[in-house]
Design a protein around this nucleic acid. Structure first.
Length: 277
DNA sequence: CCTATCACCTGCAGGC
DNA sequence: TGCCTGCAGGTGATAG
């Protein structure tokens, strides 16, 4: 589920729902969710902490606490639910519960158990911590410029789609938006990035930010219709132009959309509109 | 630096 | 119905 726009939507929804509660206790049902720390230390550290802020970098959610950063990556299927302590929950897929003094609970749900959480003292530079070892600047970070992208990519022997998915240079794009961005650029996902010029990177950045901004705006509408029984999954109503549209007509030229595997990821493209450079 | 493959997990769709 | 295979909006480690 979660790429940058969904993670941002989840974060803003949690902020709206939870605000700044104090943690009373923490229960962990699947210890591997916690990375780099034993469950006992994780629980002890969190008890008594108040959530003071909500931030995001790439696909990472960051809960700011009095003394810590609680970091969460939802990977493929992680979801947060804000519910009251008396509300029932799905025991099979709920792996962690944070209980607050006001009776609310933040429940982490993850069918495939791929998601991870990390806890770091806020006296240290968060971005030097392990969770961010392979995480570059956020897509909307002002340090991401066409020149920066050109410098990072023009000499590399990788294809466009890989570059978009490479979190260590620019973080936040996942498989769906990578497909949509390639289409918006009218470039074949297997175009070698070494063939792109500075002007192409300008366009790449403009289209990337435009698409993600639109998705966030659409995702934002789910905040209003949010109900705790539906959970916070950040789904939005963006109309996808190529992703998951195999054999359906291209919305520009009516050519059937093709699906192929590119570096192991399902890739959708219009063979007519998208050409290699 | 690059590729391929596995690992982590579960559910679901499709073929037989 | 059951069994099997492949695939899913992600990432990290490792071998060649």
């Amino acid at each position: 589920m979660p790429e940058l726009p969904e993670v941002e939507t989840v974060l803003r929804t949690l902020e709206f729902q939870l605000q700044h509660p104090c943690i009373q206790n923490v229960e962990v049902f699947w210890p591997r969710i916690i990375d780099g720390m034993d469950v006992q230390s994780f629980q002890n550290a969190l008890i008594g902490q108040t959530i003071t802020g909500y931030k995001r970098t790439g696909k990472y959610l960051i809960f700011e606490l009095d003394a810590f950063y609680l970091v969460s990556h939802l990977r493929m299927e992680g979801k947060f639910y804000v519910q009251n302590k008396e509300d029932p929950y799905d025991a099979k897929h709920t792996h962690l519960i944070i209980r607050f003094a006001n009776g609310k609970e933040l429940r982490y749900h993850d069918t495939r158990k791929f998601g991870r959480m990390y806890l770091y003292p806020n006296t240290e530079d968060l971005y030097k911590q392990k969770a961010f070892a392979h995480c570059g600047y956020d897509v909307f970070d002002e340090r991401v410029t066409p020149k920066y992208l050109y410098t990072q990519f023009h000499h590399r022997n990788i294809v466009l789609k890989q570059a978009l998915l490479d979190q260590s240079t620019m973080a936040g794009i996942g498989n769906i938006y990578a497909n949509e961005i390639c289409f918006a650029l009218r470039l074949h996902p297997e175009t070698r990035v070494s063939r792109l010029r500075k002007k192409d990177f300008e366009q790449l950045l403009v289209e990337t930010r435009r698409i993600l901004t639109q998705a966030m705006a659409a995702g934002g509408t789910t905040i209003r219709s949010y109900t705790s029984s539906l959970g916070v999954d950040g789904r939005f109503q963006l109309s996808l132009l190529v992703h998951a549209r195999e054999n359906e007509p291209c919305k520009i030229c009516q050519t059937p959309i093709q699906k192929k595997m590119v570096k192991g990821r399902g890739t959708y493209l219009c063979p007519h509109c998208q050409r290699k450079k």
